[in-house]
Design a protein around this nucleic acid. Sequence first.
DNA 1: CAGCATCCGCTTTGATACTG
DNA 2: CAGTATCAAAGCGGATGCTG
Lengths: 214, 214
Amino acid sequence: MRSYKQYCSVARALDVVGDRWNLLIVRELLLREPLRYTDLQFGLPGIATNLLADRLRELEAAGVVEREAAPPPVATTVFRLTDWGKALRPVVTELGAWGAMLMAGSAEGCEFRSHWLTFPLGNFFRDKEPGSPPVTIELRTGDEPMLMEVTEGAVEAHAGRAEHADLVLAGPPRTVLGVLVGAIPIEEAGAEGLTYEGDPEVLGRLEHLPVSPS
Amino acid sequence: MRSYKQYCSVARALDVVGDRWNLLIVRELLLREPLRYTDLQFGLPGIATNLLADRLRELEAAGVVEREAAPPPVATTVFRLTDWGKALRPVVTELGAWGAMLMAGSAEGCEFRSHWLTFPLGNFFRDKEPGSPPVTIELRTGDEPMLMEVTEGAVEAHAGRAEHADLVLAGPPRTVLGVLVGAIPIEEAGAEGLTYEGDPEVLGRLEHLPVSPS
DNA sequence: CAGCATCCGCTTTGATACTG
DNA sequence: CAGTATCAAAGCGGATGCTG
């Protein structure tokens, strides 16, 4: 990207990460460091391969990303964020919070990856009953199952499958998310493709933090 | 901008504000609402006039910006942020914080506007001695004088000139900023174009919050 | 003058094909 | 797996012209 040539920290930040795709590359690395080139491609559907290569070079030159030759037996290059790159987490988090209300719109024609959920699930949910025993919710939507662990006031999300989940939600991403935030009552969600097993009452444990406008 | 077509709140946010210039337009409106078209042009040196018109239309259509016909005697259109647009403040603030360390680089060939300072001055400084009487610092750099009011633990910055400032700093933006953050001792700053009147001791009142890597 | 619209050359992006 | 190479299309920047 051409520099804005403004002596302003916002403009200078955008000189580095304001280019198309750059903040999404950072999102991927924040979620699942370290990543191989092909993992990045999978998490960034729509990016042209030459662009990904260009961007990684630029971000490396700027000191946001590091390239590392992974030792055998893997024997491949992996990409990580530098410390400065990791400091972009609040930027990506705030952008995600601001864009949260856009998730209510249609997901028609959009790609989806399960691991994108770790950001919103971990940041914008709380456990309403910190004293109660932990609860596990398994989400089956997208390319891999995800787990939400509701424990001691907080919510943690990561990829994985549970031995015994208290609730399993399966269906299209928009419906699963709608049920979690309480926008779609679980009894009515069947019409939008949701199926579930387990105890729907555990959804009462989730508190969804307000989204903008704040 | 083309949509990323990803069902992810970060990607959807960037579909709206990820275009070149968009977040800088938001920066201007966060700093000095409401603004006329020509005021925006002045605060966004380098933008092509057709692009500014395009972007304002797009941001208006997306619900980020509002256009208002100002009543006589002004009789012109002014632009504001909607409530949702104002909710971008944390995004711009975090970007500015992340880019802060880039301000140490050369300002050669860069444009500068005094009001851009209100963001960093207000957000990344604190008053070290909340109990002491208020202190006023006048900054003469860029297109208009700015005032820093150091009061009761906080720092406020805005355009203006003081009746009687405790300290007046004049010089190139990079030098003035360097002196404020403590990177350049005020005695050595003369070599970089700084002149001052008043009591340099008041700089001791300023605490500069740490910048990334955090 | 404020607030654009048009035109034009250049750069960036996207899609696909190909390579060590 | 981790990229290059190629090329068409879209976006951007700069200049200029129009309209109330």
